[in-house]
Write a protein that binds this DNA or RNA. Structure first.
Lengths: 125, 125
DNA sequence: TCGTTATATAAGCATATGGTTATACAATTA
DNA sequence: TAATTGTATAACCATATGCTTATATAACGA
């Protein structure tokens, strides 16, 4: 077996982390922190559309962050590994300390632009 | 102080995690796992262009993942918090176990398409 | 079997993202 | 001061991303 090159590992790790880097996927993962859920339960909990949730779930499963189990016509999703929970918890913990910096981040701010004023109020208030 | 809404926290956390979700940023962060580095050292270590590194560093700093310290005309970057190291290590650890799934992920595969054949050989071989 | 419910996929669009080149700015040195 | 070196920013482009609508597939119930 050929060793996985640094470059390949890098791309793969980045791909893995993409699972956490989108608000929709993150809300799905956080929903699953409470335990296994059917797709429609995830749809309800997150408020996202069914096709959108389904698409994100496929991605998360392909990337190994969640696993599935079929039950009749239902499909039950769950976090696949305790380290996924750990990363979610670490990011929450880190968020609490660096929130100010993140809010002021001028990159990737399209959606959050509207939130900025309120956000600053919230963190500084 | 108004509580930070779930939705706002979600967006912010996702933004934070974006720092880890790109191969270039990840290579910068992993370079910094070895300790503080000047920008040009990061450029050398990663093989990325100087403006590209500088741009990613700005993002990482704005998002709170790295911090800086000036030394004459040099700027020294370092990981800002032990939890950043932890997340990097967890993702490496997780990668080792779910690599197969990630490689076969059909989403976000533009750059890795060319690597696929080699990758499968590497993981399965 | 037929309709209904649960989930997945496809096509298409608006926009975000990452990279490059060129250039600005800042600090050091001759 | 002028030239050089280190870093940051701007403008631009090709492409990836996420969402919506429409539709397919699958399992269940009447």
């Amino acid at each position: 077996m050929v060793a996985i090159t640094d470059k390949t590992a890098l791309f793969t790790k980045a791909k893995l982390m993409r699972g956490f880097s989108d608000p929709s996927r993150l809300s799905i993962l956080e929903t699953l922190l409470d335990g296994p859920r059917k797709v429609n339960e995830i749809v309800m909990a997150t408020g996202l559309s069914q096709p959108n949730v389904s698409s994100h779930l496929s991605c998360l499963r392909d990337c190994g962050l969640v696993s599935t189990q079929s039950q009749g016509k239902f499909v039950i999703y769950q976090l696949s590994d305790p380290r996924v929970n750990e990363i979610l918890n670490l990011s929450s913990s880190l968020l609490a300390d660096v929130a100010r910096g993140v809010y002021e981040c001028t990159r990737y701010e399209p959606e959050t632009k509207l939130l900025t004023d309120l956000s600053k109020e919230q963190i500084n208030g």
